[in-house]
Write a protein that binds this DNA or RNA. Structure first.
Length: 916
DNA sequence: ATTGCGCCCTA
DNA sequence: GTAGGGCGCAATG
């Protein structure tokens, strides 16, 4: 007979995690029961493993009896800052106790003791009796108990945690963990710890000195001054923390060990409990007669199984591949992810493909894995040939009846396109999240897994390392590669099951189907195309700027009376306002003098010559470092072109973003800067076309706020800033037009008298008077602002004309500053976002429109918010210009009919600068 | 080697 | 007052 094996379930810990992991389900009484359901299925699984070698023979579920414990006698602030549990969780606490009793398993709690302490007492007693022990929890405090014969089970991720896990996570074995936890403190439990010491420092100190007392004894010798002082100042807190995290394990057991024996799944009273809760699928598993009428309960939506990385399959033979393809056809949908040897999807090589057909059912098909080291004798791992796999997958990936699901599919689409596969139809979980939850957090897979699945994905760096020790994915051994890659597909599929049903319910279908999803292949093609830059011209500019920078440096250093780092705002401020004794230096919150362009312009206006020189130096340094130098380095050696990456789910408002390099901030305002734009050129025989919407946001504001005066002005083609100047100031000249333009922008940005005053250089009263006059002359604006803020307060988000949402949780913030910021964002987001929707629709239609006109070879290269850049054979440019103009001007139709025309200006030239 | 800040480029 | 990305510096680890 094998040794007894006691499972101690941390009931309190489990319920919180289950609550956040599972959707907010209710049972047949309409009572929230998601966490209860999760708990019940977990208990079922554990009890069912009775016959297994590692399975339980004895079990108990431990709860916290009260909020006050002996630790509060030691420290009255212990757990003092805990917020009360969420409202819909409270009624689930007693139900979880009911569930436990339904399994005929003891619920154990003890006044004055925390669940952790009771668990510790039972664990020690069982170990002393020669039993094995498993603690079902992922609480870091309980990890102190790990020792031979005792492990922990994290049922959320289905991982067993042993001493090596503690060492990996905290750098010390379990017996020293209490010392590390004490030093680092815990803000949730309000364990004070020592200020300035986090997990890293705590671990290092304990590794060096042994325990808290030894660290404190050695405090005087510690090199780092801040750390030394903090240890000395907070020695008492360190000792107190050590006691707070120490688990009590010497109390008498509330129930004897033998009473915890497990007898298997008891049909009664479990059946009664399941019936009462309406957990039908579990009831069915229990067997026997079923209740007649199926209650209208949502609880039996299948809850996802835990993540079991070892269950993922590495596909290295044809039969296995065929099996997965068959499973995909049977499921009618499949999550797909590609692994490559780099970030740059234009250059990177395909290394493997992962698939998932159901939650927990995922595989990895390695294609291009080599060897980790450079062992010349070893053979690369056995893999299927890439051509074979792609040929077998192609019909599936292109099958119109099978939905392909990806996370940021743009990347994978480019990868597959390069291998002759056109993936269709598809869903993108990143975009689903973006169109449902913009403003509520990131949309990367790690963010989404955390938010929706309470799951921490395997980090890329734990597989591939970081910094100079980083390896590319093809060097990762197959077992780890499989766990990482297949998990991505598994997570993607689970996310899709959560997000897709929300789309229609939350009215995000239109923007997803009509705007963002169809944009993916369009953007993919733009990135693949890239844009040609004249490397020699950039190099010439770099040299020229470099020479001028050197010259300016000499003059500035001379004027300053000695060399210093001009690029350091700290040093520059000290030179100007201390060494040179200039007046009016304003220090910011970090104690550094402000040296920004406003401040330097002020000094220059007061006759300080060096301020003007510094501004020139700054401009040239910026242009050289950010543009002429950096862009040369970004040229793809294979294509000779620069391939930016457009972010589809980055901006809160629906705009695109551009990185690596950012081609949406190429200079244009200054003459020197514009020379950089001239280095963006068309390929030989071609020209660049630049098409931009003129004042689209003001036009949209005129429409959305329904301001007849502005609408008529746009319809007539009048200069809108002149009109505004006439209305506000009664006369039109350079000065009033400039001020009117500033005010027009201020309206779009969510006006405040304070901000406008700063911009115009007038006092707040004057600014407010102008705003009042603006509202009076254009009354719709006032109403738009009021309606938009009402929408925000009611729903927590605002919407564009196409239904795109921007959530602004800041509206409920504690400080007025934050709430006002949210209000300004709310006024701007519908306008900026509608503009983004419109140009995206133009982009989606552009390919077909050009193709229909026999201009299919005209390539769209860039988008800069209100501008599109194309490359076309010289002879086709005039015809292309007309198609582009039409497509952009009509892009809102027919979904939205605007009360203003959309003006589009098209320029043609050999370079981007010339096309403007 | 990463991180926050100040500054500055775009629409 | 809106929305982005990226550089160098200086302080962290």
């Amino acid at each position: 007979m094998a040794a007894n094996h006691l499972y101690l379930v941390d009931g309190s810990g489990y319920i919180f995690r289950a609550y956040h992991r599972l959707p907010p389900l209710t049972n047949r009484h309409g009572v929230p029961a998601g966490a209860v359901y999760g708990f019940t299925t977990m208990m079922w699984k554990l009890v069912d493993e009775l016959h297994r070698a590692e399975g339980p023979t004895h079990m108990a579920v431990i709860f916290d009896a009260s909020s006050k414990t002996f630790r509060n006698d030691m420290y009255d602030q212990y757990k003092a800052h805990r917020p009360p549990p969420p409202e819909d969780l409270v009624p689930q606490f007693p139900l979880i106790r009911d569930a436990t009793r339904a399994f005929s398993i003891p619920c154990i709690e003890e006044v004055g003791l925390e669940a952790d302490d009771i668990i510790a007492c039972y664990a020690k007693a069982a170990l002393a009796a020669g039993w094995k022990v498993t603690i079902v929890s992922s609480d870091k405090d309980l990890m102190q108990l790990i020792e031979p014969g005792l492990d922990m089970l994290d049922t959320m991720n289905n991982r067993r945690l042993g001493p090596e896990h503690v060492i990996e996570k905290f750098g010390v074995p379990p017996e020293q963990l209490g010392d590390v936890l004490a030093l680092m403190g815990d803000s949730v439990d309000n364990v004070p710890g020592v200020p300035g010491i986090g997990p890293k420092t705590a671990s290092e100190l304990v590794r060096t000195y042994g325990d808290v007392e030894a660290v404190l004894a050695a405090a005087e010798q510690i090199k780092k001054p801040k750390l030394r002082q903090s240890l000395i100042d907070h020695a008492d807190n360190a000792r107190l923390s050590r006691e707070l995290v120490r688990l009590v394990c010497d109390r008498p057991l509330p129930e004897p060990l033998d009473d915890l024996a497990l007898k298997g799944l008891p049909p009664e009273p479990l059946r009664a409990f399941l019936e009462d809760m309406g957990f039908r699928s579990l009831l069915a598993k229990l067997g026997g007669p079923q209740p007649a009428a199926a209650p209208a309960a949502s609880i039996d939506e299948e809850v996802d199984p835990p993540f079991v990385h070892k269950d993922y399959e590495t596909v290295v033979d044809e039969a296995a591949l065929d099996r997965w393809i068959a499973a995909a056809y049977a499921a009618t949908q499949i999550a797909v992810d590609t692994e490559t040897d780099g970030i740059d999807c234009v250059r990177a090589k395909l290394v493997g493909i992962s698939l998932a057909t159901a939650p927990g059912k995922a595989c990895y098909i390695p294609l291009g894995h080599g060897l980790a080291g450079d062992d010349l004798l070893a053979e690369p791992p056995t893999q299927l040939p890439a051509e074979l796999v792609l040929a077998k997958l192609k019909p599936l990936l292109e099958d119109p009846s099978i939905l392909k699901i990806g996370q940021n599919l743009k990347y994978d689409l480019i990868m597959f396109r390069r291998h002759g596969v056109d993936v269709t139809p598809y869903d993108d979980t990143m975009l689903l999240s973006y169109d449902l939850d913009a403003g509520l957090g990131g949309h990367g897979m790690d963010d989404l897994a955390k938010r929706h699945l309470d799951h921490a994905c395997i980090e890329f760096k734990t597989v591939c390392g970081t910094g100079k020790t980083q390896i590319s994915f093809d060097k990762v051994a197959l077992p780890q590669a499989t766990e990482y890659a297949a998990e991505d597909a598994d997570v993607t599929l689970r996310l899709w099951r959560r997000l897709k049903p929300r789309l229609a319910r939350e009215k995000a279908t239109r923007v997803y189907e009509l705007v963002d999803r169809p944009l993916v292949p369009v953007i993919a093609e733009m990135e693949r195309a890239g844009i040609l830059v004249d490397r020699a011209e950039l190099a010439r500019l770099s040299a020229e700027f470099g020479g001028e920078i050197q010259r300016l440096e000499g003059v500035i250093h001379e004027a300053a009376g000695g060399p210093f780092t001009i690029g350091s705002p700290k040093q520059l401020g000290e030179v100007l306002f201390e060494r040179l004794g200039l007046k009016g230096g304003r220090k910011g919150k970090s104690g550094v003098y402000s040296t920004d362009v406003n401040e330097m312009e002020r000094l220059a206006g007061e006759g300080v010559a060096v301020a003007r020189l510094v501004l020139e130096w700054r401009q040239l340094s910026k242009l050289k470092a950010t543009y002429t130098d950096a862009l040369q380095a970004q040229i793809n050696p294979e294509t000779g072109r620069v391939h930016t990456s457009f972010g589809l789910a980055t901006a809160q408002t629906g705009r695109l973003s551009s990185t690596d390099p950012n081609l949406q901030n190429i200079p244009i305002r200054t003459e020197t800067g514009r020379r950089i734009r001239d280095a963006f050129v068309a390929a030989p025989g071609n020209v660049l076309l630049s098409a931009d919407y003129s004042q689209i946001e003001l036009r949209l504001a005129a429409h959305m706020a329904d301001v007849p005066a502005l609408q008529q002005a746009f319809a007539r083609g009048d200069d809108i800033h002149n009109l505004t100047a006439q209305e506000l100031f009664g006369e039109v000249n350079r000065d009033t037009r400039g001020r009117a333009k500033t005010i027009n922008f201020a309206i779009l940005y969510g006006i405040s008298s304070w901000g406008l005053a700063g911009r115009l250089g007038v006092d707040r009263g004057e600014a407010q008077a102008m705003i009042d006059r603006y509202f009076e002359r254009f009354p719709g604006i006032n109403r738009y602002i009021a309606d938009t803020l009402a929408e925000l307060r009611e729903h927590g988000y605002v919407t564009t004309l196409f239904g795109r949402k921007t959530h602004l949780p800041g509206i409920k913030a504690k400080t007025v500053g934050e709430r006002q910021a949210a209000e300004r964002q709310a006024i701007n987001a519908p306008i900026q976002g509608t503009s983004a929707d419109i140009i995206k629709r133009a982009m989606v239609r552009m390919g077909p429109a050009l193709a229909a006109a026999g201009l299919g070879h005209v390539r769209m290269l860039l988008q800069v918010h209100d501008e599109l850049v194309f490359e076309a054979p010289e002879a086709d440019a005039p015809a292309a210009a007309e198609v582009i103009r039409e497509t952009m001007a009509r892009a809102a139709e027919p979904a939205v009919t605007l009360s203003v025309p959309l003006g589009v200006e098209v320029g043609i030239g050999k370079s981007w600068g010339a096309a403007h």
